[in-house]
Amino acid sequence: MIKKILKSYDYSLILAMLLLCGFGLVMVYSSSMIAAVARWNYESDHFFQRQAIFIALGLVFFCITMFFPYRAYLNRFFIRSVVLVSILMLLALFVFGSIKGGARGWFSLFGFSLQPAEFVKLSVIIYLAAVYEKKQSYINHFGRGVLPPIIFTGFICILIILQPDIGSASIIAMIALSMVICSGLGMKNIFKLIILGAACLVAISPLLLLKWDKIFTTERISRFAGFMDPFADAGDSGFHLINSYYAIASGGLTGLGLGESVQKYGYLPESHTDFILAIISEELGIFGVLFVLVLLAFIVLKGFQVARHCEDAFGTLLAIGVSSMIGIQTAINVCGLTGLLPITGVTLPFISYGGSSMLLLMLSIGILVNISMFVKFRAVHQKSDSKPAGESTGSPATI
Protein backbone atom coordinates (compact mmCIF):
# COMPACT_ATOMS: atom_id res chain seq x y z
CA MET A 1 0.00 0.00 0.00
CA ILE A 2 2.80 2.43 0.93
CA LYS A 3 4.57 1.74 -2.36
CA LYS A 4 1.37 2.43 -4.28
CA ILE A 5 0.91 5.70 -2.40
CA LEU A 6 4.50 6.78 -3.06
CA LYS A 7 4.11 5.96 -6.75
CA SER A 8 1.00 8.14 -6.87
CA TYR A 9 2.82 11.33 -5.91
CA ASP A 10 3.40 13.83 -8.70
CA TYR A 11 7.18 14.16 -8.60
CA SER A 12 7.22 16.59 -11.52
CA LEU A 13 5.35 19.09 -9.35
CA ILE A 14 7.80 18.54 -6.48
CA LEU A 15 10.78 18.90 -8.83
CA ALA A 16 9.43 22.17 -10.26
CA MET A 17 9.10 23.58 -6.73
CA LEU A 18 12.62 22.48 -5.75
CA LEU A 19 14.12 23.92 -8.94
CA LEU A 20 12.44 27.27 -8.30
CA CYS A 21 13.59 27.31 -4.65
CA GLY A 22 17.18 26.43 -5.58
CA PHE A 23 17.31 28.94 -8.42
CA GLY A 24 15.71 31.60 -6.23
CA LEU A 25 18.27 30.98 -3.48
CA VAL A 26 21.12 31.61 -5.92
CA MET A 27 19.46 34.77 -7.25
CA VAL A 28 18.72 36.08 -3.73
CA TYR A 29 22.45 35.93 -3.04
CA SER A 30 23.38 37.51 -6.36
CA SER A 31 20.80 40.31 -6.09
CA SER A 32 21.34 41.12 -2.38
CA MET A 33 25.10 40.76 -1.86
CA ILE A 34 25.86 44.44 -2.61
CA ALA A 35 22.86 45.90 -0.77
CA ALA A 36 23.50 43.70 2.28
CA VAL A 37 26.94 45.29 2.76
CA ALA A 38 26.38 48.83 1.47
CA ARG A 39 22.82 49.48 2.67
CA TRP A 40 22.45 47.43 5.87
CA ASN A 41 26.08 46.76 6.85
CA TYR A 42 25.47 43.00 6.92
CA GLU A 43 27.63 40.19 5.61
CA SER A 44 27.27 39.73 1.85
CA ASP A 45 25.53 36.35 2.31
CA HIS A 46 23.13 37.59 5.05
CA PHE A 47 19.93 37.27 3.00
CA PHE A 48 21.18 34.06 1.36
CA GLN A 49 21.61 32.38 4.73
CA ARG A 50 18.22 33.52 6.00
CA GLN A 51 16.51 32.39 2.80
CA ALA A 52 18.20 29.00 3.14
CA ILE A 53 16.72 28.73 6.66
CA PHE A 54 13.27 29.64 5.32
CA ILE A 55 13.53 27.00 2.60
CA ALA A 56 14.72 24.32 5.04
CA LEU A 57 11.84 25.09 7.41
CA GLY A 58 9.46 25.28 4.46
CA LEU A 59 10.51 21.80 3.35
CA VAL A 60 9.54 20.46 6.78
CA PHE A 61 6.08 22.05 6.44
CA PHE A 62 5.87 20.83 2.85
CA CYS A 63 6.53 17.23 3.89
CA ILE A 64 3.88 17.46 6.62
CA THR A 65 1.15 18.75 4.32
CA MET A 66 2.26 16.45 1.49
CA PHE A 67 1.58 13.36 3.61
CA PHE A 68 -1.38 14.73 5.60
CA PRO A 69 -4.73 13.81 3.96
CA TYR A 70 -6.32 16.98 2.66
CA ARG A 71 -9.84 15.83 3.59
CA ALA A 72 -8.84 16.11 7.26
CA TYR A 73 -8.93 19.91 6.88
CA LEU A 74 -12.72 19.62 6.67
CA ASN A 75 -12.89 19.12 10.43
CA ARG A 76 -15.27 21.77 11.79
CA PHE A 77 -13.08 22.57 14.79
CA PHE A 78 -10.06 23.02 12.51
CA ILE A 79 -11.93 25.36 10.15
CA ARG A 80 -13.24 27.49 13.01
CA SER A 81 -9.78 27.62 14.59
CA VAL A 82 -8.21 28.73 11.29
CA VAL A 83 -10.79 31.50 10.88
CA LEU A 84 -10.47 32.68 14.49
CA VAL A 85 -6.65 32.67 14.47
CA SER A 86 -6.58 34.57 11.15
CA ILE A 87 -8.85 37.32 12.51
CA LEU A 88 -6.98 37.55 15.83
CA MET A 89 -3.60 37.82 14.08
CA LEU A 90 -4.81 40.62 11.83
CA LEU A 91 -6.36 42.48 14.78
CA ALA A 92 -3.22 42.02 16.88
CA LEU A 93 -1.18 43.78 14.21
CA PHE A 94 -2.85 47.07 15.08
CA VAL A 95 -1.41 46.78 18.61
CA PHE A 96 1.78 44.72 18.33
CA GLY A 97 2.63 44.97 14.63
CA SER A 98 5.89 46.37 13.27
CA ILE A 99 5.88 48.96 10.50
CA LYS A 100 7.73 48.23 7.25
CA GLY A 101 7.26 50.11 4.02
CA GLY A 102 4.57 52.22 5.63
CA ALA A 103 2.38 49.22 6.59
CA ARG A 104 1.85 47.74 10.04
CA GLY A 105 1.81 44.20 8.71
CA TRP A 106 4.55 42.27 10.52
CA PHE A 107 5.28 40.66 13.86
CA SER A 108 8.94 40.74 14.90
CA LEU A 109 9.91 37.44 16.55
CA PHE A 110 13.44 36.34 17.52
CA GLY A 111 15.06 38.50 14.86
CA PHE A 112 12.67 37.36 12.12
CA SER A 113 9.58 39.03 10.69
CA LEU A 114 6.27 37.19 10.28
CA GLN A 115 3.63 38.58 7.92
CA PRO A 116 0.19 37.23 8.94
CA ALA A 117 -1.45 38.35 5.68
CA GLU A 118 0.55 35.68 3.84
CA PHE A 119 -0.85 32.85 5.96
CA VAL A 120 -4.34 34.35 5.86
CA LYS A 121 -4.31 33.67 2.10
CA LEU A 122 -4.19 29.92 2.77
CA SER A 123 -6.73 30.26 5.60
CA VAL A 124 -9.21 31.90 3.22
CA ILE A 125 -8.60 29.20 0.59
CA ILE A 126 -9.27 26.38 3.07
CA TYR A 127 -12.31 28.16 4.51
CA LEU A 128 -13.92 28.90 1.14
CA ALA A 129 -13.24 25.37 -0.15
CA ALA A 130 -14.85 23.84 2.96
CA VAL A 131 -17.84 26.17 2.97
CA TYR A 132 -18.62 25.83 -0.72
CA GLU A 133 -18.39 22.04 -0.58
CA LYS A 134 -20.93 22.09 2.23
CA LYS A 135 -23.19 24.45 0.26
CA GLN A 136 -23.14 22.52 -3.04
CA SER A 137 -26.78 21.45 -2.68
CA TYR A 138 -27.91 25.08 -2.44
CA ILE A 139 -24.98 26.87 -4.06
CA ASN A 140 -27.23 29.12 -6.13
CA HIS A 141 -29.26 30.34 -3.16
CA PHE A 142 -27.70 33.80 -2.88
CA GLY A 143 -28.58 34.43 0.75
CA ARG A 144 -27.50 31.03 2.14
CA GLY A 145 -25.04 29.73 -0.43
CA VAL A 146 -23.13 32.77 -1.65
CA LEU A 147 -23.29 35.71 0.72
CA PRO A 148 -21.87 34.44 4.10
CA PRO A 149 -18.41 33.40 2.76
CA ILE A 150 -18.18 36.61 0.75
CA ILE A 151 -18.91 38.72 3.84
CA PHE A 152 -16.14 36.92 5.75
CA THR A 153 -13.66 37.41 2.88
CA GLY A 154 -14.61 41.07 2.61
CA PHE A 155 -14.04 41.56 6.35
CA ILE A 156 -10.58 39.96 6.07
CA CYS A 157 -9.70 42.21 3.11
CA ILE A 158 -10.79 45.33 5.02
CA LEU A 159 -8.55 44.40 7.98
CA ILE A 160 -5.60 44.00 5.60
CA ILE A 161 -6.35 47.23 3.73
CA LEU A 162 -6.33 49.10 7.04
CA GLN A 163 -2.72 47.99 7.76
CA PRO A 164 -2.53 49.23 4.96
CA ASP A 165 -1.57 46.42 2.54
CA ILE A 166 -3.56 46.84 -0.65
CA GLY A 167 -1.49 44.28 -2.56
CA SER A 168 -2.25 41.35 -0.24
CA ALA A 169 -5.91 42.36 0.07
CA SER A 170 -6.21 42.45 -3.74
CA ILE A 171 -4.65 38.99 -4.06
CA ILE A 172 -7.03 37.51 -1.47
CA ALA A 173 -10.01 39.13 -3.21
CA MET A 174 -8.96 37.72 -6.60
CA ILE A 175 -8.33 34.25 -5.14
CA ALA A 176 -11.78 34.32 -3.57
CA LEU A 177 -13.33 35.45 -6.85
CA SER A 178 -11.69 32.61 -8.78
CA MET A 179 -12.91 30.05 -6.22
CA VAL A 180 -16.44 31.47 -6.17
CA ILE A 181 -16.66 31.38 -9.97
CA CYS A 182 -15.46 27.75 -9.97
CA SER A 183 -17.75 26.69 -7.12
CA GLY A 184 -20.70 25.97 -9.42
CA LEU A 185 -22.28 29.39 -9.08
CA GLY A 186 -24.72 30.39 -11.83
CA MET A 187 -24.25 33.47 -14.01
CA LYS A 188 -27.22 35.18 -12.34
CA ASN A 189 -25.51 35.05 -8.94
CA ILE A 190 -22.15 36.08 -10.42
CA PHE A 191 -23.89 39.17 -11.77
CA LYS A 192 -25.37 39.79 -8.31
CA LEU A 193 -21.89 39.55 -6.82
CA ILE A 194 -20.61 42.22 -9.22
CA ILE A 195 -23.44 44.54 -8.15
CA LEU A 196 -22.75 43.72 -4.50
CA GLY A 197 -19.05 44.49 -4.96
CA ALA A 198 -19.83 47.87 -6.47
CA ALA A 199 -22.24 48.61 -3.62
CA CYS A 200 -19.60 47.67 -1.03
CA LEU A 201 -17.09 50.05 -2.61
CA VAL A 202 -19.63 52.83 -2.26
CA ALA A 203 -20.43 51.78 1.32
CA ILE A 204 -16.80 51.74 2.50
CA SER A 205 -15.88 54.98 0.71
CA PRO A 206 -16.43 57.02 3.93
CA LEU A 207 -13.94 54.71 5.71
CA LEU A 208 -11.45 55.17 2.87
CA LEU A 209 -11.86 58.94 3.12
CA LEU A 210 -11.40 58.81 6.89
CA LYS A 211 -8.20 56.75 6.59
CA TRP A 212 -7.11 58.37 3.31
CA ASP A 213 -3.78 59.65 4.63
CA LYS A 214 -2.85 56.25 6.06
CA ILE A 215 -4.03 54.09 3.16
CA PHE A 216 -3.08 56.37 0.26
CA THR A 217 0.25 57.61 1.52
CA THR A 218 2.55 59.85 -0.52
CA GLU A 219 4.60 56.77 -1.42
CA ARG A 220 1.56 54.89 -2.74
CA ILE A 221 0.31 57.88 -4.70
CA SER A 222 3.77 58.20 -6.24
CA ARG A 223 3.56 54.56 -7.38
CA PHE A 224 0.47 55.37 -9.41
CA ALA A 225 2.15 58.49 -10.80
CA GLY A 226 5.21 56.43 -11.71
CA PHE A 227 3.00 53.83 -13.36
CA MET A 228 1.18 56.42 -15.47
CA ASP A 229 4.34 58.19 -16.67
CA PRO A 230 7.60 57.04 -15.04
CA PHE A 231 9.76 59.41 -17.11
CA ALA A 232 7.85 62.49 -15.89
CA ASP A 233 9.68 62.20 -12.55
CA ALA A 234 12.59 59.87 -13.25
CA GLY A 235 14.38 60.72 -10.02
CA ASP A 236 11.46 59.99 -7.70
CA SER A 237 8.13 58.34 -8.57
CA GLY A 238 9.45 56.71 -11.75
CA PHE A 239 12.87 55.77 -10.36
CA HIS A 240 12.20 52.09 -9.60
CA LEU A 241 10.29 51.35 -12.79
CA ILE A 242 12.81 53.08 -15.06
CA ASN A 243 15.70 51.15 -13.51
CA SER A 244 13.67 47.98 -13.88
CA TYR A 245 13.39 48.81 -17.58
CA TYR A 246 17.17 49.35 -17.72
CA ALA A 247 17.81 45.98 -16.07
CA ILE A 248 15.47 44.13 -18.43
CA ALA A 249 16.82 45.88 -21.52
CA SER A 250 20.47 45.37 -20.52
CA GLY A 251 20.05 41.62 -20.19
CA GLY A 252 18.86 40.95 -23.72
CA LEU A 253 18.75 37.28 -24.69
CA THR A 254 21.64 35.85 -22.68
CA GLY A 255 22.26 38.45 -19.95
CA LEU A 256 25.39 40.09 -18.61
CA GLY A 257 26.34 37.02 -16.59
CA LEU A 258 25.51 35.72 -13.12
CA GLY A 259 26.54 38.31 -10.52
CA GLU A 260 27.21 41.02 -13.12
CA SER A 261 24.11 43.16 -12.58
CA VAL A 262 24.61 46.93 -12.44
CA GLN A 263 21.12 47.82 -11.19
CA LYS A 264 21.61 46.01 -7.89
CA TYR A 265 24.22 48.63 -6.92
CA GLY A 266 21.55 50.77 -5.26
CA TYR A 267 19.47 51.55 -8.34
CA LEU A 268 16.86 48.95 -7.41
CA PRO A 269 16.66 49.07 -3.59
CA GLU A 270 14.30 46.07 -3.51
CA SER A 271 16.42 44.03 -5.91
CA HIS A 272 16.14 40.79 -3.91
CA THR A 273 12.38 41.05 -3.26
CA ASP A 274 9.96 42.90 -5.56
CA PHE A 275 12.37 43.38 -8.49
CA ILE A 276 14.33 40.14 -8.40
CA LEU A 277 12.98 39.12 -11.82
CA ALA A 278 14.46 42.32 -13.30
CA ILE A 279 17.87 41.30 -11.91
CA ILE A 280 17.39 37.79 -13.34
CA SER A 281 16.66 39.37 -16.71
CA GLU A 282 19.76 41.57 -16.48
CA GLU A 283 22.12 38.76 -15.43
CA LEU A 284 20.68 35.75 -17.26
CA GLY A 285 18.64 37.35 -20.03
CA ILE A 286 15.32 36.25 -21.42
CA PHE A 287 16.31 32.59 -20.99
CA GLY A 288 16.61 33.04 -17.23
CA VAL A 289 13.23 34.77 -17.11
CA LEU A 290 11.63 32.03 -19.20
CA PHE A 291 13.10 29.36 -16.92
CA VAL A 292 11.30 30.92 -13.96
CA LEU A 293 8.02 31.74 -15.69
CA VAL A 294 7.74 28.35 -17.42
CA LEU A 295 8.21 26.51 -14.10
CA LEU A 296 5.67 28.75 -12.38
CA ALA A 297 3.22 28.29 -15.27
CA PHE A 298 3.76 24.52 -15.06
CA ILE A 299 2.83 24.52 -11.35
CA VAL A 300 -0.27 26.65 -11.95
CA LEU A 301 -1.49 24.59 -14.92
CA LYS A 302 -0.71 21.35 -13.10
CA GLY A 303 -2.78 22.61 -10.18
CA PHE A 304 -5.77 23.33 -12.42
CA GLN A 305 -5.36 19.88 -13.99
CA VAL A 306 -5.46 18.33 -10.52
CA ALA A 307 -8.60 20.35 -9.76
CA ARG A 308 -10.23 19.16 -12.98
CA HIS A 309 -9.69 15.48 -12.15
CA CYS A 310 -10.49 15.69 -8.44
CA GLU A 311 -13.82 14.02 -7.63
CA ASP A 312 -14.81 16.06 -4.58
CA ALA A 313 -15.63 19.76 -4.42
CA PHE A 314 -13.33 20.42 -1.45
CA GLY A 315 -10.22 19.08 -3.18
CA THR A 316 -11.16 20.80 -6.44
CA LEU A 317 -11.59 24.20 -4.81
CA LEU A 318 -8.43 23.78 -2.70
CA ALA A 319 -6.40 23.08 -5.85
CA ILE A 320 -8.01 26.02 -7.66
CA GLY A 321 -7.30 28.32 -4.72
CA VAL A 322 -3.62 27.35 -4.42
CA SER A 323 -3.07 27.51 -8.20
CA SER A 324 -4.85 30.86 -8.45
CA MET A 325 -2.78 32.29 -5.60
CA ILE A 326 0.51 31.41 -7.30
CA GLY A 327 -0.70 32.54 -10.73
CA ILE A 328 -2.18 35.84 -9.50
CA GLN A 329 0.87 36.71 -7.41
CA THR A 330 3.19 35.94 -10.33
CA ALA A 331 1.11 38.04 -12.73
CA ILE A 332 1.00 41.04 -10.37
CA ASN A 333 4.76 40.92 -9.76
CA VAL A 334 5.64 40.61 -13.46
CA CYS A 335 3.15 43.32 -14.48
CA GLY A 336 4.51 45.63 -11.77
CA LEU A 337 8.15 45.48 -12.83
CA THR A 338 7.24 45.79 -16.53
CA GLY A 339 4.95 48.79 -16.01
CA LEU A 340 1.67 47.06 -16.84
CA LEU A 341 0.39 47.61 -13.29
CA PRO A 342 1.38 49.96 -10.45
CA ILE A 343 4.13 48.59 -8.21
CA THR A 344 2.40 46.92 -5.25
CA GLY A 345 5.24 45.26 -3.34
CA VAL A 346 4.06 41.75 -4.27
CA THR A 347 6.92 39.26 -4.37
CA LEU A 348 7.63 36.59 -7.01
CA PRO A 349 6.63 33.11 -5.71
CA PHE A 350 9.55 30.86 -4.66
CA ILE A 351 12.13 33.32 -6.05
CA SER A 352 11.93 36.54 -4.03
CA TYR A 353 13.43 36.80 -0.54
CA GLY A 354 10.87 36.42 2.22
CA GLY A 355 10.22 33.91 4.99
CA SER A 356 6.46 34.26 5.36
CA SER A 357 5.90 33.95 1.63
CA MET A 358 8.19 30.94 1.31
CA LEU A 359 6.57 29.08 4.21
CA LEU A 360 3.08 29.78 2.87
CA LEU A 361 3.96 28.64 -0.65
CA MET A 362 5.58 25.39 0.48
CA LEU A 363 2.67 24.62 2.80
CA SER A 364 0.31 25.24 -0.12
CA ILE A 365 2.27 23.13 -2.60
CA GLY A 366 2.33 20.30 -0.06
CA ILE A 367 -1.48 20.40 0.02
CA LEU A 368 -1.64 20.48 -3.79
CA VAL A 369 0.73 17.50 -4.05
CA ASN A 370 -1.40 15.60 -1.53
CA ILE A 371 -4.57 16.26 -3.55
CA SER A 372 -2.75 15.16 -6.71
CA MET A 373 -1.66 11.95 -4.99
CA PHE A 374 -5.22 11.05 -3.98
CA VAL A 375 -6.50 11.84 -7.49
CA LYS A 376 -3.93 9.56 -9.11
CA PHE A 377 -4.30 6.86 -6.44
CA ARG A 378 -8.09 6.73 -6.92
CA ALA A 379 -7.73 6.72 -10.70
CA VAL A 380 -5.30 3.76 -10.61
CA HIS A 381 -7.55 1.80 -8.24
CA GLN A 382 -10.67 2.49 -10.28
CA LYS A 383 -8.85 1.36 -13.39
CA SER A 384 -7.58 -1.83 -11.75
CA ASP A 385 -10.99 -2.58 -10.21
CA SER A 386 -12.67 -2.23 -13.61
CA LYS A 387 -10.39 -4.86 -15.22
CA PRO A 388 -11.81 -8.37 -15.74
CA ALA A 389 -10.38 -10.99 -13.42
CA GLY A 390 -8.53 -12.69 -16.29
CA GLU A 391 -6.44 -9.63 -17.16
CA SER A 392 -2.96 -9.09 -15.77
CA THR A 393 -3.80 -7.46 -12.44
CA GLY A 394 -1.31 -9.47 -10.42
CA SER A 395 -4.07 -11.47 -8.70
CA PRO A 396 -3.93 -15.27 -8.24
CA ALA A 397 -6.59 -15.62 -10.98
CA THR A 398 -4.00 -14.63 -13.58
CA ILE A 399 -1.41 -17.23 -12.61
Rank of each mutant, 00 (worst) to 15 (best):
58 G>P: 00
196 L>I: 13
171 I>A: 08
43 E>Q: 05
87 I>E: 04
175 I>E: 02
279 I>H: 02
233 D>K: 01
158 I>C: 15
282 E>A: 06
267 Y>T: 10
252 G>K: 09
306 V>W: 02
287 F>P: 11
347 T>Y: 03
10 D>Y: 01
101 G>I: 10
101 G>F: 09
358 M>L: 13
375 V>D: 07
105 G>Y: 03
93 L>C: 09
136 Q>C: 07
68 F>E: 04
126 I>L: 11
54 F>S: 02
336 G>D: 03
69 P>G: 10
257 G>Q: 01
297 A>H: 07
150 I>L: 14
146 V>Q: 04
246 Y>A: 11
163 Q>F: 10
385 D>Y: 11
210 L>I: 15
49 Q>W: 00
391 E>F: 12
75 N>L: 10
211 K>A: 14
4 K>P: 11
95 V>I: 11
375 V>L: 07
61 F>P: 01
377 F>D: 09
221 I>E: 00
158 I>N: 09
360 L>V: 07
231 F>V: 08
211 K>T: 11
278 A>D: 02
343 I>Y: 00
198 A>G: 15
5 I>L: 12
336 G>R: 05
80 R>S: 10
31 S>M: 05
380 V>L: 08
393 T>R: 15
121 K>N: 10
156 I>Q: 01
27 M>N: 02
195 I>G: 08
71 R>F: 06
17 M>V: 13
99 I>N: 15
238 G>P: 10
140 N>P: 09
3 K>L: 13
228 M>R: 14
223 R>E: 00
13 L>R: 05
128 L>C: 14
271 S>G: 09
